[in-house]
Structures are given as C-alpha cells and as structure tokens.
Design a binder for these strands. Structure first.
Lengths: 232, 232
DNA sequence: GATTGACAAAGAATGTACGATCTGAAAGTT
DNA sequence: AACTTTCAGATCGTACATTCTTTGTCAATC
C-alpha cells in the first residue's frame, strides 16, 4: 500500500560488501533516503518502519534520531520525521564544501609527504589504471585508499570526518552509476597531475588539481542523476 | 557520587534565554558536553542520566543518538556512549573549517548585496559599536544578526547549516568568557573593513577580511580556554 | 606464594510491550 | 459556510525482559 512498505520489502537482503557487515536499521534507512527510495519530504512513520524491519519501534526511533543529527531527516515535536530531499542541490552543496576543504587538506599533505608516501600513491594509481574502471567496487575502494592516504594523517580530525561522511554519501548516491569515458580519462589525468605536483612540492598546484578533481566529480554525479531521472 | 550526578543536579534551572525555551534533554546534555561539565571520554550511563533528568531511559537514549549524529558522543555497540572531548583542538578544527567556508559565503554575498543590505549592516554595526560589548548576550545577538544577514540567503543551505552549528558550538563554549580589550577593537575594525569591502564590491578583500575575523575569533576563544583551565 | 585462568554474579545496553498524549481530519451543529 | 466536537492514528513516555559486558572471586598451575 504505502510507498514505504513497497520499497523496503523490495530489499530483503543486500550484498553489504560495504565496510561493516552491519545491516543495521540505521544503515538501511540512510541508504533508502540517499538512494531516493523514499520520496522527498515523505513522512516516516515509526510503527510502519518497525513492522517492515521486523523489530519494535524503539530501534527505529533511535535510528531516526541519529539520522536527524546527520541532517537526513527533519523531525518536529509530536509530528514525527520527514525525509530530507537528496537532490541535485544536495549533491552540489556537498561538493562545493568539499571544493573548499579538500584543497586545504591536500595542501598540508604536500608539506609532510615522504618518498614512501609518493611511491604508495603511484602504486595505487598504477593499480587504478590497470583496473581501468573494470570493477566499480574495486575502483571505488582503490580511489578511497588513494585519497585516504593523503588525508588520514591530517591533524584536523573534524575536517577529515566531514570529508569521510560526504564521501560516503556521494559514494552511496553514485553507486550503480556508470562512469562516462570522458570522466574516466579526466580522473586519471587529475590523479597524475596531483602526484606530479606533490612530487614537485607544488602545494598551490596540488591544491588546484584536487579542486578540479572534486568539482569534476560532482558535475559528473549530477549529470548521471539527471540521466537517471529522465530514463526512469 | 558519580561525577555526572553532581554536575547535572548543579543545574536545576537555567535562564534559557537562548533561542527556543526548550530545556530538552538533548539541549541539556549537549550543553554539559560543550561546557566540559562532563569530562572527556567519560562514560554516559543511560539509567543514571535518566534518573538525574527525572525521566525514563528512552528520551535519554534518543538524545544520545542525536548527539552521536552530530559527533558529540561516540557510541560503540553494547558498550554505550562516551563523551567526545571538547578541547582546544576541537575549537581549532572547527575554526579552520570556518576559515574555509565563511570567506566563500561572504564572497557570494558581495555579488548580491543591495544598498538596503549594506545600510542594514551599517545599522547593526552602529548598534554594536554603541553597545560596546556592554551586554554579552545582546552583543552576541547583534553579531549573529550581522553575519546572518550575509549568509542567510545563500543557496548552499548545507554550508549555512554547518556554519550555524559551528557558531552555536563556539557560542556555547565562549559564553561567560570576557572579551579582551584588544579583541574588542579588532572585532570592530574587522567589521568596518568588511563593510567597506562590500561597499566597494571588493570580493577578494571581503573574503580576506572575514577570514581574518574568523581566525582572530578562534584564537581568542582558545586563549580564554587556556586562561580558564589555568585559573580553575 | 604469585599469576593466570575460568566461572559466576552484578551492571548496563538493547529490545519489547503498553499506556498516555498529541495531532489532524472528518462528521455534525448552528 | 464556518465553527465545534469527536475519533482514529501516530508520537512520546514508562516499565519490564533479554542479552551482552565487566568485574570480582576462587581454584589450579607454575
């Protein structure tokens, strides 16, 4: 009947290759919101969700509170929770913030990068190029490792956490999307340029390169979202 | 007995002049964490908090989940919640992010600012100067209005929300702190310079001005935190 | 005799069920 | 037609059961 029910029971079991194998209520709800399986501004009724999930209402309530803290649902007293729309604007907003943050993180990395770091980056990049976008999941993991190598040791944990969260969201949205050929070559170019700048201790250049990288990535995701919306 | 109990019952009622009059459990917990009334990494036991708050455990659990979503507590399965330390590093991290975000928000505002906007800014600035840091609460409100005028119409709601949250945190931390005389004059100077740049359509200048403003504010808060830690 | 191991009991978090309270909308009255 | 009343549905709060962690004790071994 309801839109929620039809959607949630359509996902009886998932691969859950992602990180922790926890198909927790929180994860499921977040995924459904991010992937647009629940419509924007739709009301999330606790009892209904609980019966779909096969649990009582309490875990659902707590999951919703957590999602509220992260900004995925909007709760008003005595009136329950509504889905925050995950649309192109949302992606654009996140990417714009990343365009500001990631260059700063990268700039700092240029100052502390060792020879071993650069070799590791090159190794990862070689793996990425060899894989050549053959397996989406593997590529995503390699790309994550690539950027994590640069950011993980940064002193500003808060900024890195923000990056991780944003990246999770973007990754969840773009899962299943095909990467266009032009974007593929751009990604490789941008990575190569980034490595070159880091090698040359060119902080400004690295900063600009990562900025373009993030911006291009955002643009590509939005394009794919539009395509998907048009085609069904 | 416990450190939590002695602390929470020490705040039986508060002024709650801040925004909504909701002295919700969430607000109380968040405030206690931000103000360091609960020690860093201290364990937050649900039953204990519930009895201190005078409610049952469920509302406390939901408040903790929300705080987890916002990053104030760290929860591990079957092992409960711990307080995330709110220390100088935390403030520095937040301010560094703001140094990146606020200039971008300001830059955009320069492009859309009308004559009426500038006049309103000047009016607020005149009020601030007249008040001259006499009433901390009033000054804080005026300052909030001043910056809100610039950011509120920005299209990137996500970035603005981030700013609001960060500002809330910083405001909560620095509540009760005295503003040093040198910082007072700097604040006024920076505001004046900001207005001048906006008037002259100088986006770069305004961007730099707000950057210095945020950085100076952060430095001042950290200094005060150190002072307070030393003195008691 | 000291250290380590298992085992049991207390404590705390998670999950379930139910009652109280509030909202929203439909029905009925003036 | 507009206002009031009523009632179903959903949220919020309380109490309790279950499961997991942790701590403390006791015995066995080195």
């Amino acid at each position: 009947m309801s839109t929620i029910s039809s959607i949630l029971q359509a996902v009886p079991e998932r691969d859950d290759l992602a990180e922790d194998g926890g198909s927790s209520i929180y994860e499921r709800l977040r995924d459904d919101i991010i992937h647009g399986r629940v419509k924007a501004n739709e009301r999330l009724k606790v009892a209904e969700l609980a019966s779909r999930m096969g649990t009582s209402t309490n875990p659902v309530r707590e999951a919703l509170q957590q999602l509220r803290g992260e900004g995925f649902v909007i709760m008003t007293p005595n009136r329950g929770a509504r889905v925050r729309p995950i649309d192109e604007e949302f992606v654009r907003d996140i990417c714009e913030i990343e365009v500001l943050i990631e260059p700063a993180l990268t700039r700092w990395f240029v100052g502390i990068a060792t020879k071993a770091d650069i070799e590791e980056l090159e190794r990862l990049q070689a793996e990425i190029e060899e894989l050549n976008f053959g397996d989406e999941m593997k590529h995503s993991n390699l790309d994550l490792q690539f950027h994590r190598l640069m950011y993980d040791r940064h002193y500003n944990r808060h900024a890195v956490d923000l990056w991780v969260r944003h990246r999770h969201i973007l990754w969840a949205i773009s899962r299943g999307f095909q990467t266009s050929l032009s974007r593929q070559s751009n990604v490789l170019d941008e990575h190569r340029e980034l490595i070159a700048c880091i090698k040359a201790q060119d902080a400004d250049g690295a900063s600009r390169a990562i900025g373009r990288h993030v911006e291009g990535s955002g643009r590509h995701i939005i394009e794919r979202m539009r395509l998907e919306k048009r085609n069904g």
